[in-house]
Design a protein around this nucleic acid. Structure first.
Length: 424
RNA sequence: GUGGGUGUAGCUCAGCUCGGUUAGAGCACAAGAUUGUGGAUCUUGGGGUCGGGGGUUCAAAUCCCCUCACCCACCCCA
């Protein structure tokens, strides 16, 4: 007995039956993204491990336990899209070549987590990054990116999602925020769960979205007054909110919103959907000005950068089964009844139809007429062309409209013209 | 990485608690009723390493151990 080889854990095949859903959201996404002046970039699926260690943070869980390393030393499959794009931006000197760099990407990401609903080891993201010097520190870019994310989700047919935003402030403010948390949580430190005891030193922000009930009550007692934000940061945040409001984006301020990746500062946001269960984030993003310098870009240029990514599997989950796009069937299903399964003239006709750009297929096996018509009906064919021995001897075909259930004899020489006419 | 659940026909599942002839149902598929006209009905039929491996037993889908995969939650995140 030969041992069966199965797909690796946490991966799944996207079969032809469901690919139209993917094409649909990819096509819609590309159209909207181009309208917003974002352009596709394709970076490698794997990178130097050091790239992610430096950008995501050595202590982040993604780096510590979720990275899929390749056997070739020092390489890892990309767990996210931002760091590779920043790497490419710097490596290709785009900061010197263009004032404005607005990228989008669509593709697979990899994380070695235990699979769950809405969480795979190979998953797909569509995301954007807007990077540039000087002017790119404007708050309208934060707003633009959030508006774009919302626009995409709406175009995908989603409505029931929630946008939460927060500001972590500048790098200094973020430190102050951390101090603020440590100071105010210190008295109740013993009430926190074991995980949070750990987080207190390692990454105090993570305590804010702990699901433990004890921790939640402690956190709810905290009073967030943005006092740790500088005046500039507060103004910046206010501008972002104003832009969003005037664009009609329905958002909710969430002072407890923090992100797990180290590189975020200033604006952070997250879009969640109630139908997704425990992994309810459709997408998330924020501002990461410092990452460019941290990865070796020129600090003197005072870079600005902001972006987001959406999880495509989660988008599809949210869209739900009921929205399944109907499979488009062939325009023409040729039914041949000759002694051999496929008659030569029928095959020629098939080829001519295809050359004319008409979606056509044929029965490749010999069967009775009723079975073949049933087959044509099962694949949603618009027309059946019946070519039996009678028809072939007279150089005609029976053109059958599958929906109207009507049929008529057409000369073979005029068949393609007639089909074209009817398809219009 | 931790906890719980599930795995039986192409699909959805029953059977397992309490071991016992040839492991079932619905849907799907195939043949026929209808020798060249599709979505209905009826009849008949093909299909199974019971996830995999090991153990207990006269006997295992059923009990025990190991393992793999999926699902849900934790963790983390898209």
């Amino acid at each position: 007995m030969v041992e069966k080889i199965i797909a690796p854990r946490g991966t799944s095949d996207i079969l032809p039956a469901e690919i139209s859903l993917w094409h649909d959201i990819e096509n819609k996404a590309r159209k909207v993204l181009e309208v917003y002046d974002y352009h596709e970039i394709r970076t490698p699926i794997f990178e130097e491990t050091a790239l992610f260690v430096r950008s995501l943070g050595e202590t982040s869980d993604v780096v510590q336990k979720q990275m899929l390393n390749l056997e070739k030393e020092g390489l890892s499959l990309r767990p996210e899209g931002t760091a590779p794009i920043v790497r490419s931006y710097i490596e290709n000197n785009l900061d010197k070549k263009e004032l404005v760099s607005k990228f989008y990407y669509i593709g697979p990401m990899f994380r070695g987590e235990r699979p769950q609903k809405g969480r795979l080891r190979q998953f797909h993201q569509v995301g954007v990054e807007a990077i540039g010097p000087g002017a790119f520190q404007q708050p309208f870019l934060d707003a633009e990116v959030i508006i774009l994310a919302v626009h995409l989700l709406k175009i995908f047919g989603l409505a029931n999602f929630k946008v939460k935003i927060n500001s972590l402030g500048s790098a200094q403010d973020k430190n102050a925020f951390g101090e603020f948390l440590r100071k105010n949580l210190n008295d109740n430190r013993k009430l926190l769960c074991a995980d949070c005891q750990n987080r207190f030193d390692r990454n105090v922000f993570r305590i804010l979205d702990c699901k433990n009930l004890e921790c939640k009550t402690v956190i709810d007692k905290l009073h967030f007054d943005n006092s740790y934000l500088s005046k500039d940061s507060r103004d910046f945040y206010a501008d972002v909110k104003e832009c969003l409001a005037s664009a009609g984006v329905d958002f909710e301020e969430s002072p407890k919103l923090v992100r797990g990746l180290d590189y975020y500062a200033h604006t952070v946001f997250e879009i969640s959907h109630p139908g997704l269960g425990s992994q309810d984030a459709l997408g998330a993003g924020g501002r990461y000005n410092n990452l460019i310098g941290d990865l070796g870009g020129e600090k003197r240029l005072d870079m600005g950068a902001v972006g987001f990514s959406l999880g495509m599997e989660r988008v599809l989950l949210a869209i739900g089964e009921d929205k399944k796009i109907e499979q488009l069937g062939p325009d023409v299903f040729i039914v041949t009844l000759g002694p051999r399964a496929v008659d030569k003239k029928a095959f020629q006709l098939l080829d001519q139809l295809r050359q004319a750009g008409i979606y056509a297929t044929i029965n490749y096996h010999l069967a009775k007429l009723d079975k073949l018509l049933r087959a044509a009906s099962n694949v949603n064919a618009k027309f059946a062309v019946i070519l039996g021995e009678d028809e072939l001897s007279k150089d005609i075909a029976l053109l059958k409209d599958m929906q109207a259930r009507s049929q008529e004899e057409i000369k073979l020489t005029e068949l393609i013209k007639e089909i074209k006419k009817r398809l219009c």
